[in-house]
């Protein structure tokens, strides 16, 4: 069989340990001066690609791809420190409405990249934790007319036959198909590694291509408009009671007794 050419799209999102806050105008989540990092599902994708190589599978190249603001470069460097061979950064101007990407736009863009890079396996996170759309992988598979296995918890490749295990309600489901294909990752797939210092240094020397949307002839613009973003209602505080009698009378008051 031919070698594996793996494309791993990654996204820079607000760090998942940071509590997101809605901006004053209630149009979006506040992103300025908030810690960002790689979408955790994408970390799993990179890790899986690197592990395929470590399992001595004929991995020719692992390409990490991102579309985002200039800062998104940081996560490409992280991806390369984890083991990707090169990075492609499509720089987006966040203020330009025609550059606002929705899942379909991303999928169209990825299709172009797949063709350009001659990828035969795309591993992506099943969703990004900021938009929670969970659509890109499926749309990409549709556009490419490739088989797809979503929410993978285990991936085995032998020759050009791929076996993917996915967790479903109350059990697991095992799928089998042939390359080329699209896989989306789920939490139990693996445990992403730390970026080690020597690899961080090496990653600095790995190639990083910079592009813009204009390099890909296609319409990517957004079709949806966000009307309003609101936080969930705050949790009501509890009441302290002095003693058992106090608690009982309070419960009676609330009609619980």
């Amino acid at each position: 069989m031919s070698g594996l050419r793996i494309l791993v799209p990654v996204k820079r999102v607000i760090d998942y340990a940071v509590k997101p806050r809605v901006n004053r105008a209630q149009t979006a989540v506040e992103t300025a001066s908030v810690k960002h990092s790689m979408n955790p599902f994408d970390e799993l994708s990179i890790e899986e690609a690197v592990r395929l190589r470590e399992r001595k599978l004929p991995v020719e190249e692992i390409v990490a791809f991102t579309a985002g603001p200039p800062k998104a470069q940081d996560i490409l460097r992280t991806a390369m420190a984890m083991g990707a061979d090169k990075g492609i950064h499509v720089q987006l101007d966040e203020k330009d409405a025609s550059q606002q990407l929705e899942p379909l736009g991303v999928a169209k863009l990825l299709k172009k990249v797949v063709q350009e890079q001659k990828s035969n396996l795309v591993i992506l996170g099943k969703q990004s934790i900021d938009d929670d759309a969970g659509q890109t992988g499926q749309m990409l598979a549709g556009l490419l007319d490739w088989p797809q296995a979503t929410q993978a918890s285990k991936v085995d490749i032998e020759g050009d036959v791929v076996t993917v295990t996915r967790e479903v309600d109350g059990g697991v489901e095992t799928l089998k198909t042939k390359l080329p294909m699209v896989i989306t990752t789920d939490l139990r797939l693996n445990e992403p590694r730390y970026a080690s210092l020597p690899n961080i240094m090496k990653a600095k020397k790995k190639p990083l291509e910079k592009k813009t949307l204009r390099d890909y002839e296609e319409k990517f613009g957004a079709r949806l408009k966000t009307i309003k973003v609101t936080e969930p209602p705050p949790r009501k505080g509890g009441v302290k009671v002095e003693d058992v009698d106090g608690m009982i009378s309070k419960l009676k008051e609330l009609g619980a007794l």
Binding site: Y16, V18, K35, L197, M201
Partner: peptide, 22 residues
Amino acid sequence: FLEHVMETSIVSDGVLAQDQTQ
């Protein structure tokens, strides 16, 4: 700093946290 301590072999190996959880 990290480059320096790696290159001069002051530290043998290391990791840098990439996100809050790390």
